[in-house]
Simulated assay, not measured.
Amino acid sequence: MTTNETIQAYAPGLFLATMIACSAKWIEGLLPEGIISASVLALFIGMLLHTIRKPDPEYQKGIAFSSKKLLKFAIILLGASLNISTIMQVGRMSLFIMVFTLTTCFGVGYFVGKAFHLNWKMSNLISAGTGICGGSAIAAIAPVIEAEDRDIAFAMSATFIFDMVMIVVFPLLGTWLGMSDTAYGLWAGTAVNDTSSVVAAGYTFSERAGDFAVMVKLTRTLAIIPTVLIFSAIQFHSAHKAADTDLKNGKITAIIPYFILLFLCMAGLNSLGFIPEAIASGMKHLSKFCMVTALAAIGLNTSLRDMRKGGAGPMLHGFIISLLVVLVAYVAIQMQQA
């Protein structure tokens, strides 16, 4: 296939996904900050279009490229926005709380997923989205475990719905409980999922609480690094026959996918100060847009009718885990301050 033929094959689907991403970003800009992210909007717009009319075959190559390859590229660029030294800025306080919340998400989440008969990939995507950083964590882990588009859509939807409730409820609860700015910022930063929702819930309480909540959220985002490595190992063992062959041939990508290696390299370079702040900021924005485009493509591959057939299990899973994280984080903060 020539270069022109390749472009013609991929262009229609890639263009459609990009247009949906642009529309989602535009709609996000019209709404109050933190109400709903462009990623979720793009996913839902894509699913709506698929439900109205499934994309023609000529769009499929570009859609597949956007949902798989472009998503991996977005994860690589995401590494440039992660700075491991952020942990030192926030201190041990938030890390102590995160140990409890992440243990709750993945520990209790495993049994909740079993109870609702969810496949392990969907269950862990919901747990990762709840425990780490919403859509970014889901997007980072999904290609590592080779999750289906439907699993990603369910996980995104489950975490999004709870976030919408938390934006309104969290500031009210913080005031009712008489929490300090620091305690509330720590609570919101560890218990609310998506970054935009953390910003909305944090700054609604106070500017100081919002600043601290964002710092805690940045530290929490760093949990993506060990999590993707752990799930890479899990995926390696689940496909041990092919992996064993690659391992004997000396291929480290049999255990850690190439895009995760590049993601870790980017995070390391940024942490060491080799990436200028302006470039890191630009790469972060490009990463976010690529991620929105990828989620638009995932939506175009997902039918709302099929999701309805999946039942309420994924949504209940997300609700139970999110509620437990809120309670566990609050109790851990009280223990720490006692």
Rank of each mutant, 00 (worst) to 15 (best):
Y10E: 14
L95E: 12
F160M: 13
P55M: 04
S271L: 10
S123Y: 08
I84Q: 07
T253P: 13
L304C: 03
S67W: 08
S81M: 13
R92D: 12
A153W: 05
L300K: 02
I45P: 00
A297Q: 01
S196M: 10
A188R: 09
I45A: 05
T245K: 14
I255D: 12
V331M: 11
E148H: 10
L125T: 09
T104Q: 11
T86W: 08
N83Y: 15
I35Y: 15
F259T: 02
M179L: 14
I230H: 10
H240P: 14
L300G: 00
K284E: 11
A42Y: 00
L177P: 01
L16A: 04
E28W: 06
F212D: 02
S123C: 14
M291E: 02
T159C: 14
A338H: 05
A142Y: 15
L71E: 00
I27N: 08
R53H: 07
K69T: 13
A243I: 04
F154C: 03
Y10N: 07
I126S: 10
M307F: 14
N119I: 02
S123K: 10
Y203L: 00
H285R: 06
L323R: 14
C22I: 06
I255F: 13
F116A: 01
T103M: 07
H285E: 08
A329I: 03
D246I: 03
F263P: 01
L95R: 07
T86R: 10
G273Y: 13
I167Q: 03
G185N: 05
A158S: 03
L102N: 07
